[in-house]
């Protein structure tokens, strides 16, 4: 791509609790960004009231015209911050960067270049510092995620990602979902790639909160599992477990009753009777949960559309191309315009 095509990059930097000196960091990012030769803009999204960070960003703004700042009134989380920043972004390429040093700024170019044959490009920090225990935890975590989702990922914790605008137009992130953007994008049919980047020498967060990191990994695994397996066909998921539990329970009951009739063992002497009734109950309730899930999906089928049309090709003279199939993107666009409440200066 040459400069004449004016490839616009919007850099979104969500500023949460963890942050390095923004001034220094931004200088560093700028060096990497300028080396690309593209026209870029930067949006700092302050997640919650952060007077110090706001002052710093204001000071940066004095010397640089390409920066804007968005302040959220309370900490909404990184996903919301990213979406709020995206609403203001104008570039055709969106680059999210963490508010702390994670990667060497010289490698930002690699991320953007990765979009040549993908829609979303993730950074994979390598070689990675940290003890063997951390490395093992990360390896197990990413293996499990890859196993559940079928999409190959190696570094979900890295906040540096480059994507085409379309990706965020079609995917609305909430909660902790920014971490699984790759999984969500893959499900929507976007091509996801990963490039190796060098880890910044200042990136040393892991290890301090070991237990926190472990629980977080575990919760992440669960959410991904439900996201992928459950949201589509709840009864397939709950029904399988429910029916198996129910059949075990029923089998035990039948055995006990047969033993009562033919073997003359009084049911009253059988604690297994309690076990079996609990299993029957559990099975039925899981099944009921699955049915309830199906009801929810059916009654909201219009909103939970499980496919995305990439394009409709028709005879060139067929007139104006109908905007069929992009209705989801339209919705998110409409929603995106609505909450102007965010900026609380």
């Amino acid at each position: 791509m040459t400069q004449a095509t004016r490839a616009d990059i919007s850099v979104i930097i969500p500023v949460g609790l963890r942050q390095d000196d923004l001034m220094e960091l931004y200088e560093d990012y700028c060096a990497g960004l300028r080396a690309l030769g593209h026209h870029f803009e930067t949006i700092f999204v302050l997640d919650g009231p952060q007077t110090r960070a706001a002052a710093t960003v204001r000071r940066i703004m004095e010397s640089r015209p390409e920066i804007s700042m968005l302040q959220l009134t309370r900490p909404f989380g990184e996903s919301t911050a990213l979406m709020a920043g995206f609403e203001r972004a104008t570039g055709s390429i969106i680059l999210t960067l963490p508010a702390y040093s994670q990667i060497e700024s010289g490698d930002i170019g690699k991320l953007v270049a990765g979009l040549n044959n993908a829609d979303l490009c993730l950074a994979h920090r390598t070689p990675r510092r940290g003890g063997p225990l951390d490395a093992a935890r990360r390896a197990i975590f990413h293996h499990m995620v890859s196993g559940i989702t079928g999409s190959k990922v190696r570094d979900l914790g890295c906040g540096a990602r480059a994507m085409r605008r379309q990706v965020l137009e079609e995917i609305t992130l909430y909660g902790e979902q920014h971490r699984f953007l790759a999984v969500l994008a893959n499900r929507q049919g976007f091509r996801v790639s990963e490039v190796d980047v060098r880890q910044s020498p200042q990136d040393h967060f892991a290890g301090h909160y070991a237990t926190r990191e472990y629980t977080r990994s575990l919760i992440d695994i669960c959410s991904i599992f439900f996201l992928v397996r459950f949201t589509k066909r709840p009864l397939r998921f709950f029904g399988m477990i429910g029916v198996s539990t129910l059949s075990i329970g029923v089998a035990i009951v039948l055995y006990l009753v047969a033993d009562r009739i033919f073997g003359n063992h009084a049911l009253a002497d059988r604690p297994a009777l309690l076990l079996s009734s609990l299993l029957v109950v559990l099975g039925l309730q899981l099944f009921a949960l699955g049915l309830l899930g199906e009801l929810i999906i059916f009654t909201h089928a219009k909103n939970i559309k499980d496919y995305q049309i990439a394009e409709v090709v028709e005879f060139p003279s067929a007139g104006e191309r109908p905007r069929i199939g992009r209705s989801d993107a339209d919705h998110s666009g409409a929603e995106a315009g609505a909450p102007a409440v965010y900026a609380g200066r």
Partner: peptide
């Protein structure tokens, strides 16, 4: 075909979703 024949329209998915979504 779609570009040659005005009676043909092609709806393209980005990935394989399965027969019902198609």
């Amino acid at each position: 075909l779609a570009e040659r024949d005005s009676r043909v329209r092609l709806v393209k998915f980005r990935r394989n979703y399965g027969q019902t979504p198609a």
